[in-house]
């Protein structure tokens, strides 16, 4: 990609961000909002720079929890979807549980999980797994069920073995749906980790935000929020591009 095209592609998001920053600055300036309620962009930027070591350490913890949660949740959810497809009893017994994992608010579970799994990263990883389990499992399972009937007819006319149909036909055909679930998961997994940190932790962006909040260090809290948002966007982008590369046969319209 040429330098010109990079500038052109970055132009719009950068423009949007600058516009938002300007709006923010305007509200603080013209609205006379006190800085402990809404700090001006300048002081957030100063906090971002002054506390860069602290923020980087916290972001590292949260990123580790998020990535571990994504890996475990994807492996677990993917395996469960395959099992549900292969066996009717598993499907009947597990589907309500999968739904339950979405229906129970993780915010309510978080204190319990911290109690069970401790103040370390384990409870946050479990939170992230819980948050992404439903989108991963349901999207993959849906994809596995929706194999085009023509392929299944062809497989039947070839006296195919059911296990191999699942592995070599249904599974690859379901990957685009699985990828959709994975993109959603990449966007919400950090949320699970941060909620866990909020409830009880000794490091991480959620922990940092909470302590900053109680000390009325609103500028640091906003800086942590900015770091979290950028991290989430980068994670999503990385997952999105990796998936587009792995699913080389799926049309991927990137013309805009």
């Amino acid at each position: 990609m040429s330098a010109g095209r990079i500038v052109a592609r970055l132009g719009r998001p950068v423009g949007t961000l600058c516009g938002l920053g300007l709006l923010w600055w305007g509200i603080v300036r013209l609205g006379g909002v006190p800085p402990y309620l809404l700090p001006p962009p300048g002081s957030v930027a100063r906090a971002l720079w002054a506390q860069r070591g602290l923020l980087a350490g916290a972001a590292g913890t949260t990123l580790l929890e998020t990535v571990l949660g994504l890996l475990l949740g994807t492996a677990g959810g993917g395996a469960l979807a395959l099992l549900m497809m292969a066996s009717t009893p598993v499907r009947r017994w597990m589907m309500p549980l999968v739904l339950l994992s979405q229906a129970v608010p993780v915010f309510a579970l978080a204190p319990l999980l911290v109690l069970w799994f401790g103040f370390g990263i384990a409870s946050k990883v479990v939170m992230a797994v819980l948050v992404i389990f439903f989108p991963i499992t349901s999207s993959f399972f849906d994809g596995l069920r929706r194999t085009p009937p023509g392929w299944l007819d062809l497989a039947r006319s070839m006296d195919a073995r059911p296990g191999l149909v699942l592995l070599r036909l249904r599974l690859p055909a379901a990957l685009p749906a699985f990828a959709t679930g994975l993109r959603v998961a990449a966007a919400i997994a950090p949320l699970g980790a941060v909620v866990g940190e909020w409830v009880g932790a000794s490091s991480g962006l959620g922990f940092l935000m909470q302590t900053a909040n109680t000390r009325f260090e609103t500028d640091l809290m906003f800086a942590a929020l900015l770091v979290l948002a950028s991290m989430t966007v980068l994670l999503w982008w990385g997952v999105d591009r990796a998936l587009a590369r792995m699913l080389y046969w799926v049309p991927d319209d990137r013309s805009d």
Partner: peptide, 22 residues
């Protein structure tokens, strides 16, 4: 319709029957 698997190379599509029968 041709029912080719879009992720599989041409030769693997031709051998689909054996791949599905193991």
């Amino acid at each position: 319709r041709d029912l080719l698997q879009p992720w599989a190379r041409v030769i693997d599509n031709v051998m689909l029957g054996d791949r599905l029968r193991g």
